[in-house]
């Protein structure tokens, strides 16, 4: 299901992001709101954000080698990048997403 979505949006400038969070922890909540605002600000209308609660799908934790949460995986555009933390460090998030914009 997820993979199909990604394939559909494989164009270079379409961002496919997946955020893994652990339930409703403080870090999770902060990360969700942070990444949402960043996307709205920098990637408006050209991103797809999927939020996965690892508690609901614990098998994913092993498959995706999840350790530190929250974890954001940028599936597209390539290369794949991983960012963990509550996304409060905007500079690092943008660097990870490959967005070269002056803040």
């Amino acid at each position: 299901m997820l993979d199909k979505d990604i394939k559909k949006n494989e164009s270079a400038d379409n961002f496919v992001l997946r955020l893994f969070v652990a339930g409703a922890s403080a870090n999770s909540a902060r990360a969700i709101s942070n990444i949402r605002s960043i996307c709205e600000l920098y990637l408006k209308n050209r991103y797809e954000l999927e939020i996965v609660d690892v508690y609901q799908q614990p098998l994913l934790a092993q498959q995706e080698q999840l350790i530190a949460l929250p974890l954001l995986i940028k599936k597209n555009p390539l290369p794949e990048r991983r960012m963990f933390g509550d996304m409060s460090d905007l500079k690092k998030v943008l660097k990870g997403l490959g967005i070269n914009e002056v803040i």
Partner: peptide, 28 residues
Amino acid sequence: LDYVYVDRNDMEETGQFDLDGVFIRLGY
């Protein structure tokens, strides 16, 4: 058996985090 692997190369630390990933994997 679970192999936990962290690749520093494609990792970016973007603020506060926790190790819930380990907890979830272990708990599961």
